[in-house]
Design a protein around this nucleic acid. Sequence first.
DNA 1: CGAGCCGTTGAGGGGATTCAAGCTCAGTGG
DNA 2: CCACTGAGCTTGAATCCCCTCAACGGCTCG
Lengths: 249, 249
Amino acid sequence: MPVTPIYRQKARHAQVQVCVACEVRCSALFGALDAQGLERIKADIDNLELTANTRIYGPGSDSDAVYTVRSGMVRFERFTERGDLRIVRLAGPGDLIGLEALLQRPYRDEALCCGPVQLCRIPCELVDKLGQHEGSLQRELMLRWQTDLENAEAWVANLATGPARRRMLRLLLRLADLGPQDGTIWLPRREKIGAMLDLTFETASRLVSQLRREGILELTAMRTARVDTTALRQALQAEDAEGSERPAA
Amino acid sequence: MPVTPIYRQKARHAQVQVCVACEVRCSALFGALDAQGLERIKADIDNLELTANTRIYGPGSDSDAVYTVRSGMVRFERFTERGDLRIVRLAGPGDLIGLEALLQRPYRDEALCCGPVQLCRIPCELVDKLGQHEGSLQRELMLRWQTDLENAEAWVANLATGPARRRMLRLLLRLADLGPQDGTIWLPRREKIGAMLDLTFETASRLVSQLRREGILELTAMRTARVDTTALRQALQAEDAEGSERPAA
DNA sequence: CGAGCCGTTGAGGGGATTCAAGCTCAGTGG
DNA sequence: CCACTGAGCTTGAATCCCCTCAACGGCTCG
């Protein structure tokens, strides 16, 4: 059984304390609210602690809430019309997921926990209520959508383009960005890597092994690894340099 | 997906008339406004007619306006870090582009006309002004962002996945959706097809030729073609059926 | 007419897949 | 305790798809 660090719940005071002390507060949805504002919403927000591969929501769920990721990573899965699994998005601490619920739309993808994940569940009603008074909230939401959109287009340009090795290197960079900033990353199963980069799991495995031999990647625990980020960036530059005959005017 | 019902009314003044008579009005940003509301905004909206390959905006431009596509198609280009061109998005009639401007962000991609294009240029100031009074406008904007996001993820899942032939077929389907609904599509240069599907232009050419021989595609004019949509869907189903040993539980 | 761009097609090579065999490791039950 | 099992990972060999390199044709335009 993988070590699933069970978080000791401190004296379960008000939700207010959780929000005030939240590490992602400044980047979170209600970051603009003061303590008094938080007081009013304490009752409605649920604080969740989930284990790896727990389903947060999916196309079948009632879309009546959004979620702030406090820690951990979330992946978004869907099936192509052909029937094979694809991962189309990753979310990390500070991200707000399930935005479509605010528009009364069904959740489009399955949101699943990559490892242990801490979430805040925020009912849509609450957002609606606050949105009427707080104009800044509307703008904050639009910013979320915009960054999601930019990330999605970056996914197309970076993770869905070029030879497998480059895609893998870019994925590692993204994983390093999303996770803790200490060089440790969550390293998915080879099959999941394939679902992100459109590769077979064998190819994903070969690439991981290759990077391990090059010293860029070092497997540490079950689903975790350590990356040498400078070596990683070097490898990427080397990749990009090769084909640079013309600057593609 | 793109529902473009036809709206016609008599109107008095120049831009007002344009807006009221606009074919994409119900799907457009100000669809909710009545004639009186339109009266107030007539002065600020510019009606543009552009030719193929005209640049609408790009990372360098002042991001002070959004644009409604009235007719034609718009493509979004960017360069990967390696330096090669990628097309990450397509917009058609009824779409609102350049949303990031509303958040004082620079335009991320280059927006270019695929063929002749009619646009309405809407200054951000105007949107801000109207947004304060019209609460529905905010919601409408969020809907735009959400559909853009869904399209981007669909791009990842459909156009960036699987063998080249399937990607090409999916692209044709998308082009048929965006363009006029009469089976005529705008068929990009082979190089641009490559930039959308991550292929070399030679492979793109081979695929086009192949589909032509199969009767799915028929080149008509310079950048246009006629697709047999039913044959297209059949070909796609055939593609998807082949690899369907297991439903990928 | 030659120059240049775009598109097409062929031949060869390389990268990813497919098929297949072992491997490690945790859990299970004898 | 240890063999057994099954899931995940690794690696090899053969195949196939797509890329690379190359030549050629149609077309526009100077």
